[in-house]
Every structure is written in C-alpha cells, then in structure tokens.
Design a protein around this nucleic acid. Structure first.
Lengths: 122, 122
DNA sequence: TATAAATTGCAATAATGTTGCAATAAATAT
DNA sequence: ATATTTATTGCAACATTATTGCAATTTATA
C-alpha cells in the first residue's frame, strides 16, 4: 500500500463521511498518524482549492464537510444537537432579499435540532 | 452616578449598538473596567435570559447582538467582510423545508459580503 | 448589625488554531 | 544515478478565546 500524503488521506476521509468532521475527529480517525498541525494545514489547502467546506454551527463547533454544491443552490447545514452530526442539504437559492446596497458574497444557513436517528431514540 | 453591575453595563452597550460586538470589543468599550472573565460571565447570563444573541459568522468570529425577534421571523445576520460589522435583519420564516423527520429547533442564517458603507468606499 | 447571596478579579487550565524552523521525503534537473 | 530543488511533516512555541475554582469584595436580606 502506498503511503499517502496527509492531504489526500484527509480528503478521502471527509469525502467518504456522510457527516461533518472536526479536525480532532479527523486526526483520531487516522489513528493520530499525523501531527495536529499537519491536519490543520491539509484542511487549509483543501479549503483553498474548494475541495471541502468549513461549517460552523450555531454553537460555534467547527466541522469540515465535502459537498459538491452547484453555484445556484443554497447549502443548508443541519447540525444535530444530540449527536453533533452535520448533514448538508441543498435548497433553491434566492429565498430572501436584503436591501440592494448589501453585496452578498457568501451565505451560511445552519439549522440545529434533532436528526432522525436521535429523534427515534428519544 | 451609580456604579452599575457588569451585566447591566454590557447589556446597555449591546442594546445601543447597531452592530454586533465581540467580547473584546465590549471590554474595550468599557475601558477595561471589568475583568475578561466578568464580561464572559455577563454574556452567558444575558444569553440565558434571552436578552442578547450570540452570532457566529462564516469566518468563525463570535459577536453578540441585541434583537427582539418575533418567534415567527427568521433572523439573518449580515457580516461585512471588510469592516466586520454584523447587521441583523428579519425575514419571513418558512423559506425552506427539510425532510419531516428533521426536528428544527434553531436557525442561523449568516450572510457575508460588503455592507453599504464599505461598498461606497471601494 | 449580622448573615447570606451575588458579583468580581485573579490565577490556572482548556480548546483550538497559527507560525517558524529543522528534518525528511518526493520530484526534477544534471 | 546523483545532485538540487521543492513539498511535506513534526516539533516547539505562541496566540486567541473561553472556562473553572477560589478568595475577596460588594450588595441584599434577616
């Protein structure tokens, strides 16, 4: 097996994951094979090339996800308060307007509550 | 002049401010009259009693704002990438839907870009 | 006035992220 | 194949933001 670079391994992990992952979770999932700093640097590079996306939930928790969003769709991130899962959704864009002189460059719609599996358990 | 408690002073400051403030900005605006920890504790209490709201912008910057949101309106926070201002807006709720089994408890719609005054300068 | 409760500050700790530098590994040129 | 350059990684140190325990002070209540 070819010993892959941190960046590739981190990307694969995020890509395969159906939920958002924190830097710590990523490091642990990789059996602490890489230094903390290496993980951070990989995440920075992956974000720069738009391979992954950083999501900050209403509680301020930072997670990294993969999602191939089309430019015209608005991304919603659902953060489960119980298990911490972050699940991405896409909805149609232009769901609201601000006064014309506000130039919108980025949007982040984060919703938190209970995900289906946590709801079932309760 | 009556020497007010940190909590009241912090609330007045946030209440009067038209933009979001960080814990550091709050402390400095109060001439470092209070300890850092005291500011944090005031902010926690004010959030607990729903007097203020914590907003985390897409860059992860934490700001505190006052806004009397009606339960049926969705709050949008516009974060200027240039000056860092956070300006709250209200829009009608129910602008999107998720699958039924996702229980939505909180929403955070944060938009970033350029505010009118920064746009004018450019 | 005495006692209880709340507020505040200080020091220490924690979590998360960044930077500089040296060591190593990989890629490219000679 | 070897030398040179470039990229990757780890370590230590630092930075920022937030939390906790404890003692001191202030305020409220008995």
């Amino acid at each position: 097996m070819i010993p892959l670079r941190a960046k590739s391994v981190v990307f694969e992990l995020i890509h395969k994951s159906s939920v958002g992952l924190s830097s710590l979770e990523i490091r642990e999932a990789l059996n602490n094979r890489f230094n903390r700093v290496t993980i951070y640097r990989s995440l920075v590079k992956l974000q720069e090339e738009n391979s992954i996306q950083k999501v900050i939930n209403p509680q301020g928790i930072v997670k990294y996800i993969y999602c191939n969003c089309t430019s015209d769709a608005l991304q919603i991130h659902f953060c489960c308060k119980n298990c911490g899962r972050i699940v991405p959704f896409q909805i149609e864009n232009h769901i609201f307007t601000l006064p014309e002189d506000y130039i919108i460059e980025e949007m982040n719609l984060t919703v938190s509550g209970k995900c289906p599996s946590c709801e079932k358990e309760a």
